[in-house]
C-alpha cells in the first residue's frame, strides 16, 4: 500500500534537497578537478605558444571595447552620482578620490570580470561543449593529445593573464570618464580634480585590484571550460552549459570578491 500524500510530500522534498546538494557538490568537485588538471598540465611540455597567443588576443585585445565602454560609463556615473551627493555637504573635492578608489579597488575588477564572464566564459563553454558533443575532444584523446593540456590550459592561462591588463586599462578609462563628467558637466576644477584623484590612491589599491582580476579570470575560465568539458545532450546541452557557465562564474566572482576584499584590504 502506498504512503498517504501528506507523508510523501516531506520525503519528496528531502529527495529534491538531496539531489540538489549532490549536484552542487558534483559541480564543486568538477571545478576543482579541472583546476588541478589545468595546473598539472600547464607545467608539462609541449607548450603550444601559438595557442596561448591566439587565446590572449581573443580574451585581451578583442575584449578592449566592451571593457573600455563599461569602465568609461561606470566612471561617468560614479562622478555624476557622487558629485550630486557630496554637493549636499560641500565635499565635492572628494569626488575624484571616491571615483578613483572605488574604481581601482572594486568596480573595475568586478565589472570587467562580469563582462568577460559573459563574453569569454560563455564562449569557452559553448566552444568546448560543441567539441564534446561532436566527439572532437574524444578525437584529441584518440590521437594521444591530452585535451586539458591542448584546449583548457591556453584558455585559462590567457584569461588569467589578460584580465589584469584589461582591468588596468579599465581603471584608466574609468577615471578619465569621471574626470570628463566632473570637469565637463559639473564645472569642477580640472587641476584640483586631477590632484585629488591621486591624493589618496596608492599602489596597493591598484595592485590589489589587479590581483582580484587575475583570480576572477582564473575562476571564470575554469568554470567555462569545466562546464563545456562536461557537456552532454547535444545542442540543447551546449545551451545549458553556456548559460550555467555564465551564471555560475558571475556568482562565484561576486562571492569570492567578498573574501578577496577581506584578505587584501
Amino acid at each position: 500500500m502506498s504512503a498517504p500524500a501528506s507523508r510523501r510530500r516531506p520525503i519528496a522534498a528531502l529527495e529534491w534537497l538531496g539531489e540538489r546538494s549532490t549536484h552542487a557538490f558534483e559541480e564543486i568537485g568538477r571545478f576543482f578537478t579541472m583546476l588541478y588538471l589545468t595546473l598539472y598540465w600547464a607545467v608539462r611540455p609541449p607548450f603550444d605558444l601559438r595557442q596561448w597567443v591566439r587565446q590572449m588576443v581573443r580574451v585581451g585585445v578583442d575584449s578592449i571595447p566592451v571593457v573600455g565602454l563599461t569602465a568609461m560609463f561606470t566612471g561617468m556615473v560614479m562622478a555624476l552620482q557622487t558629485y550630486r551627493g557630496f554637493e549636499r555637504f560641500h565635499a565635492e573635492s572628494f569626488v575624484a578620490s571616491v571615483v578613483s578608489l572605488s574604481l581601482t579597488r572594486e568596480l573595475a575588477p568586478v565589472l570587467a570580470a562580469l563582462m568577460i564572464a559573459g563574453r569569454i566564459g560563455s564562449s569557452l563553454a559553448a566552444e568546448l561543449g560543441t567539441m564534446r558533443v561532436t566527439e572532437q575532444i574524444d578525437a584529441l584523446q584518440a590521437m594521444a593529445v591530452e585535451p586539458v593540456q591542448y584546449l583548457v590550459v591556453p584558455r585559462v592561462a590567457a584569461t588569467t593573464l589578460m584580465l589584469p591588463p584589461l582591468v588596468a586599462l579599465a581603471d584608466g578609462i574609468g577615471i578619465a570618464g569621471g574626470f570628463g563628467v566632473a570637469v565637463g558637466l559639473m564645472d569642477a576644477n580640472p587641476v584640483v580634480y586631477w590632484e585629488k584623484t591621486f591624493q589618496f590612491l596608492d599602489l596597493n589599491d591598484v595592485f590589489s585590484g589587479l590581483i582580484k582580476a587575475a583570480v576572477f579570470g582564473l575562476i571564470l575560465s575554469v568554470t567555462g571550460c569545466s562546464k563545456g568539458f562536461h557537456t552532454t545532450g547535444g545542442a540543447e546541452g551546449v545551451g545549458r552549459s553556456t548559460t550555467a557557465a555564465v551564471v555560475m562564474a558571475s556568482l562565484v566572482i561576486l562571492l569570492s570578491d567578498f573574501f578577496l576584499t577581506k584578505i587584501l584590504f
Partner: peptide
C-alpha cells in the same frame, strides 16, 4: 599506448 591507435569517428569528428 594510444599512439598505436588511429580512430575514425562516426561523423568524422574533424576539428571544425
Amino acid at each position: 599506448i594510444r599512439r598505436k591507435f588511429g580512430m575514425s569517428f562516426q561523423e568524422g569528428a574533424l576539428f571544425d
